[in-house]
Write a protein that binds this DNA or RNA. Structure first.
Lengths: 350, 350
DNA sequence: CTGAAAGCGCTAACAC
DNA sequence: GTGTTAGCGCTTTCAG
């Protein structure tokens, strides 16, 4: 008979209106900070809101709202537990939260099927915009997205053909710089370890590697180019087999972070950490604490996220200019492994 | 006159019904795989769906649906770019996707204000359930959540007092094991580096450290216990100052991953990586490649995620049993730093 | 087996 | 300033 019974269940705007002695539209005005409400009325409404612990139903609102916006963004990445994707996610989340927009994040594991399923789901949830990473060169769902009028920005990987906003690292230039760095340190027999070449990033990094060799007049040795490596273990195995060749590479360019980790393990196991040079694409946590430090081509996922968020919000605010393809520069961070001079490793003759 | 004009804009169920010559409810039945539709009718509907490239509006559906479910989950973590959170996120996402549920992820940076803001937003979006990490001992929004009848599971950190489902690491036992490991290797002067003690995890790990000292009859030396460390740099600075003491610690227990990274830097800079022992709470990528390898108390974020998802879905499916507090065991992984014997480091007298 | 009508909680449009 | 009415796209209810 003293403590007022705490409100139970969810109150609706109608309940608030009733308690405040106002019409629902007035409550709506107050909740959404629309003009034309007297301070006195506003206070009565807010009191009722507090009393009932009322919270708007954003879903219901967007159903009727003129612009049809759900204040929701869809983000698709390889996996949300990948550090690179994590940084992009965080950056996008921050930009979105500032505008009262929430983010649905989904992982697709570089699988085309999971990718289109995820996009379909996101569309069914009526996200206002999409920030996507793709596993394929030409996503087949692009027509659907376009028909729905949902803006889309691709991050990390740029689809071919379609005219779309994209934000990605300078993969080719970065890989060329990394390979050139090894060449500058005297290497001519440089292995390449790369991911599935059907992924545009792997393809571009492969091209960059070839560019550097060509620029230096070094012929390509197919036997020390290993691709289709999808995890650290595969990377380790691949490098181990290369090191066992009669004429093993004196340096390695690893085109992806997991592969770099595998390569580091292989070198350590072969006790060649100080003899065979290594440059990896994408930075690694603790890369500076390993002995010798790991030389990498660092990407800038934060900048990628910031630019992608900017782009999608610009589109949402009506920017109809031509799509832009943005390339975020990479940075070579010399820490040790990339500066090892060539050394004959095993008993190659000659 | 040949290529049928591609469908423009979003079609509604009404459009599909019209094209298929059916009622909307019939279309709804087909879309949702409800019984009582003849195959012939179903085919006509699916044809129309394909023709119009129709996709249901899940938001609109949940507005009217009896159970009111949005098939949406809210996940709150310290930061989505934290690897520990990333794994939990991924695990939850997988479990949710299997049930057609999407996940809103949000970061709160161990800030109470951001935390309650995020929870409010999630509630406004009518998530069916919440998986939360909290920065405070007693979240003030719990009443609201309870009133709304939204199930909640806490992960990583367990709030005090309230009777809630929680899934967290065995922080206290893990920290005790880590400290005991150092004691077993002969150390008696063991520093503790920890995060803000108002975070329940830091508090529990601090307790575990004290437990181990007490069990070994080692008196507590307040001057080598440093807390309120919030990033790697702070951890590095703290350890550097300890190493400069007249009577520096011979071993360090670091209660958090970022702090461990800072500690590794401090040891390396002081050239004491091989002289001062270190055990860190939470595993680190590349911890096995550093020289010496970093001994850690590894957590199992995947298991935490799996259990949390199981719990929330059980609640959603009507499990009304008493709340459970689950503790996921930690694992000590000896790699080198934790097995260094005590050594007088600088010129302490005596 | 099918479909017409009502209504979910909100905002738009338009009265007062 | 304020309230009433309609209706967003769907699912429920219930009558055929």
């Amino acid at each position: 008979m003293s403590t007022p019974t705490p409100p139970r269940g969810r109150a609706t705007m109608k309940d608030v209106a009733a308690l405040a002695g106002a019409g629902v539209k007035t409550v709506s005005r107050v909740i959404n900070n629309e003009p034309n409400v007297t301070p006195a009325m506003a206070k009565r409404v807010w009191d009722a809101v507090r009393e009932l612990d009322y919270q708007v139903d954003l879903q219901a609102g967007s159903l009727r709202r003129a612009d049809g916006r759900t204040r929701t963004l869809g983000l698709l990445v390889g996996s949300v537990d990948n550090p690179f994707a994590g940084v992009i996610h965080r950056t996008v989340e921050d930009a979105a939260a500032e505008k009262g927009v929430a983010v649905f994040a989904a992982s697709m594991d570089d699988d085309a099927r999971r990718e289109s399923d995820a996009v379909r789901t996101l569309l069914q949830r009526r996200v206002d915009g999409l920030i996507l990473t793709t596993a394929v060169r030409r996503p087949e769902y692009l027509g659907t997205i376009r028909d729905r009028g949902v803006p889309v920005v691709y991050v990390d990987r740029e689809p071919e053909g379609a005219d779309l906003d994209t934000v990605a690292s300078s993969n080719r230039a970065g890989a060329e710089a990394g390979t050139a760095h090894l060449i500058a340190h005297g290497h001519r027999r440089i292995a390449l370890l790369a991911d599935r070449l059907d992924l545009i990033t792997a393809h571009q990094r492969h091209s960059g590697y070839l560019d550097a060799l060509a620029a230096a007049g070094i012929p390509v040795s197919e036997e020390i180019i290993i691709t289709e490596l999808t995890d650290a273990e595969a990377g380790a195995k691949a490098l181990s087999s290369l090191l066992a060749l009669d004429d093993p590479p004196t340096a390695v360019f690893s085109a992806q972070n997991l592969i770099t980790i595998g390569a580091l393990h292989a070198l350590r196991d072969a006790q060649l950490s100080h003899s065979v040079a290594l440059v990896g694409f994408d930075d690694l946590p603790l890369a500076d604490l390993v002995e010798p430090g790991v030389t990498v081509i660092a990407q800038d996922p934060q900048r990628i996220g910031v630019l992608a968020a900017e782009r999608i919000f610009a589109r949402l605010e009506g920017d109809h200019s031509a799509p832009v393809r943005m390339h975020v520069p990479t940075t070579l961070i010399p820490r040790g492994t990339g500066e090892i001079a060539p050394r004959r490793v095993s008993g190659g003759i000659r």
